[in-house]
């Protein structure tokens, strides 16, 4: 007889391309891997609100202010949506936030870099969201149902963000010398960190094995990174931005661009907590979470009071 609660059965469902749903049997390792990955994704959306939020009040036109506000709101919405998706795996949002604030859970290291000039808002949309989309498009086919559906929805919005970011870069490259310099400066600072968003090379990626077997991950770090590089370099060249890498070139035989080696020392340093903004990002999250404690307590107290009143009148 077929045991629905066996790892063999689970793997055969995965191999058949079925979605795994919250109430289905899943191995503990699968559940843990998903909680780690999905919560990291949710935290990234939320922490990502900080560098962009840094520019709302200084956005140089009413239109750009609206677009940026709407974008950040989308990110927050993605965060909420993903937290709900993680909760289907039996962990609460409060626990997830605690893991973030104690450093047990990570968020994308890209947000540990500062947004220093207005073109950074363009670069974040174009490069950071651009890199995220490549990854998320692939994750639309991930094996866990709620995660896959979240990705389908999120991808639609992210592609808007990417276009809006590219539009900022284009406008600035067509603008004054100062604007062009800002755009190039942003390109120089965000290019390599964006490439690092895909994670270590496949040969150095410790968790890839299971994730690929379970079809949580559908393509490897290096495959996704290459897609991003091949897509992005022509976009940069089209508007006159220089790729901050003297050695990049198009390999005519493969049709792929090759680059200088990535500085993995920097990657590991930022992941380990020593990026330019690691401390600020986490401190900010903790500060406003703590400052909001009395508000959450008030909301809870009010809810209990009104529930009691309803009981009495009922």
């Amino acid at each position: 007889m077929h045991n629905e609660h066996s790892d063999t059965h689970f793997q055969s469902r995965i191999d058949n391309g079925e979605h795994i749903e919250p109430k289905d049997y899943m191995p503990e390792g699968y559940r843990k891997h998903l909680i780690r990955q999905m919560s990291q994704h949710a935290h990234s959306e939320v922490i990502g609100m900080q560098p962009e939020g840094n520019w709302i009040t200084r956005a140089p036109s009413l239109r750009s202010k609206q677009i940026l506000l709407a974008k950040i709101q989308d990110e927050g919405g993605h965060g909420l949506y993903l937290y709900s998706a993680v909760e289907t795996l039996g962990v609460s949002r409060a626990e997830l936030i605690e893991q973030l604030q104690t450093g047990k859970a990570k968020y994308s290291s890209i947000f540990n870099y500062p947004a220093l000039n207005w073109a950074d808002i363009g670069a974040i949309g174009w490069l950071v969201d651009g890199a995220a989309i490549v990854n998320q498009v692939s994750l639309q086919r991930t094996s866990y149902g709620p995660y896959s559906r979240a990705m389908v929805r999120i991808c639609k919005e992210e592609s808007f963000h990417q276009r809006q970011g590219y539009e900022i870069m284009t406008t600035m490259m067509r603008g004054t010398k100062d604007q062009q310099a800002m755009a190039q400066d942003a390109m120089n600072r965000w290019w390599w960190p964006a490439l690092m968003m895909f994670g270590p090379h496949d040969s150095d990626s410790p968790r890839s094995g299971d994730a690929v077997k379970w079809k949580i991950k559908r393509e490897t770090n290096d495959e996704l990174r290459q897609k991003f590089i091949d897509k992005t370099i022509p976009q940069a060249e089209l508007i006159g931005l220089t790729i901050p890498d003297k050695n990049f070139k198009l390999d005519e035989k493969t049709g792929h661009y090759t680059l200088s080696p990535i500085n993995w020392e920097e990657f590991h340093r930022v992941v380990a907590g020593h990026g330019p903004c690691n401390k600020q990002r986490l401190d900010h999250h903790i500060k406003y979470h703590q400052e909001g404690a009395w508000v959450r307590e008030a909301a809870d107290a009010y809810k209990i009071k009104t529930a009691k009143k309803e009981l009495v009148t009922a």
């Binding site: 709302i56 609206q66 950040i72 919405g77 965060g79 508000v295």
Partner: peptide, 28 residues
């Protein structure tokens, strides 16, 4: 807008940003 990423809960962050967005649209 100054309150972005500073709400007491994520839902409130979104609600206040949403009001801000309405305001900027109206101003425009």
């Amino acid at each position: 807008s100054e309150l972005c990423s500073r709400g007491p809960i994520l839902e409130e962050d979104l609600a206040l940003t949403n009001v801000a967005l309405d305001m900027i649209g109206r101003a425009q």
